[in-house]
Design a protein around this nucleic acid. Sequence first.
DNA 1: CTGAAAGCGCTTACAG
DNA 2: CTGAAAGCGCTTACAG
Lengths: 350, 350
Amino acid sequence: MKPITLKQIAEQLNISVTTVSKALKDYPDVSKKTKAMVKELAKTLNYRPNTFAVNLRTKESKTIGLIIPVIVHHFFANVIKGIVAQAEKKGYLVIILQSNESYELEKKQIDLLMSQRVDGILISLANGSARFDHLNEVINQGKPLVMFDKIAKIVNCSKVIIDDRKAAYTATQYLIDIGCKRIAHFRGPLLPQNSIDRFLGYKKALTDNGLPYDPSLVYICECGDMSFEEGKMNAKKLLEDHDDVDGIFINTDLVAIGALNEFNNQGIKIPEDISIVGFSNWFMSSVISPTLTTIDQPGYLMGKTAFKQLFKEIKAHKKNKSIIPKIITLETVLVKRESTKKSTNTILEI
Amino acid sequence: MKPITLKQIAEQLNISVTTVSKALKDYPDVSKKTKAMVKELAKTLNYRPNTFAVNLRTKESKTIGLIIPVIVHHFFANVIKGIVAQAEKKGYLVIILQSNESYELEKKQIDLLMSQRVDGILISLANGSARFDHLNEVINQGKPLVMFDKIAKIVNCSKVIIDDRKAAYTATQYLIDIGCKRIAHFRGPLLPQNSIDRFLGYKKALTDNGLPYDPSLVYICECGDMSFEEGKMNAKKLLEDHDDVDGIFINTDLVAIGALNEFNNQGIKIPEDISIVGFSNWFMSSVISPTLTTIDQPGYLMGKTAFKQLFKEIKAHKKNKSIIPKIITLETVLVKRESTKKSTNTILEI
DNA sequence: CTGAAAGCGCTTACAG
DNA sequence: CTGAAAGCGCTTACAG
């Protein structure tokens, strides 16, 4: 079962390949009669243009590459969905690759995608990536590249991010507004920029409000991957170390849920004893008890936006226009739920 | 910045394109000296073969298509990971598409992938798919096709599945073994084959053990998508309708966790009052309290296996060997945790 | 050991 | 309105 070619259609109709090609693409200089004839036969033969040949001629693949640290992750899964949905709208296909947080793999994958001659690349960096030659090469080759979520500031390309520092500031400020005086922070691993920025936002909120910054209230995760267990462990440690903490800002919802679980087990009342704010707005957070106050991190929108930006750059590149890198910062929202006590100023606010 | 071509290398070295091509591919009839020379220049120029041209000649794209109902789902995300990892090992890229449970979309996507001339297609059916012309066409065109998880028995292609009926039987049998007499079932939606098979396994276990099958103990979800809320609602209804249920087999972990939550809130003791078995072994299930007894559904392995089978068929197809469809059933395991009480026969079992 | 030539299936500038 | 021809960048059977 070999696929039908233009040549076969041309022979059957006793016309030239050129005319068949033009007819199928609705060139204005082909007669209506011929067009109708060609289209009909193409349809009955179930003709599909050979993409390889088309790509070879047009130098376009209508395909983009996506490199993501982990696929099995609620936030990233949403990003993927956003990218794929938007790409499909514009007639683009998405090749997906998982870097597994490894720089070496990421590098190989960039290479693969360049060989594949995708029209553009979307990437969220592996934690292990500290060198960026592979990305700079993509840019030097003139291939559109957009980073999202886990980015490197020094790489000169467009980026779609949230303002982690500001979001963390908002979260911490909210804890302060409802009356918390001793606020701890579970910051996750030391490395990725997001962790750093969230920590800095937390710290700044304290300072701006005249609260002392106490390093012993910041819990780092040595374990590597942020998880439910980490939340439990940190909660346990916190209860051993301190008896005056009345608020916690936690890096990720899953860790926050682990902490909640531990507090529940130990009979610590949330939010009466301790108020908790998480980060990401995972669907489970609205469903556990108490429901978790958190920062909504718009994964689907981020994916959609990243593709849109890439699409613009692909268009521009095609027209030989130069690309001015753009940094798009998406809004985050504080979602107030049961894990934070009501403001002590409620009455005044009415 | 136009990519380097064989021609440019040939010109620089004053040899023919043919020799360059052969040298790069280590043909035995090229001198060592020439090979070394060509390879070095190719490396310094950062030569990458033009995939479009290669594909056009070889009729292979080294790319497969993947159509999945939902990306943001713990089980499917694991499947995707398994597919992508295995494909990468074999030098294949994966184009991912989400059907959103829509037959119309799925059909379009099959068409897209056929036009893209992927070497094979992996699919898990949309719930909305009841006609299969689009899949039969793929098979008729001689394109390798493998279905996984959500399959249609009548489509004549390879399939990777679990034995839902058997797994459900095992789950229910376990509840019976630990002494449950009135076992309910949350079956989720009516339609997909998996739901039906799990229900049938439940029913058969009851019958085989001489327990009466009581339709009022089977809770159907009208809501469409299985969720935490569904679990809560069904748990509530169950408590209103019956006061003698001592075990529940639940279609999906997320629903089971919703039910657990409701039971916890209402002071129903799990497993003392009611034993619960879920399905899928979502990571949260080992982490909530009580931890959930469940059937482990091997997502990653399913993805890996599905790709392996597809790969075999792609190889066979290339050699013009005919493909004999194969049904691969993966083992499921009952994971015993806290949500089911210990067997009353424990002492005897020592 | 090397290379000229055909051809994969399409698109498009150009001629008529 | 139609078509001959060149060419995208590669692979490979064949000749020398």
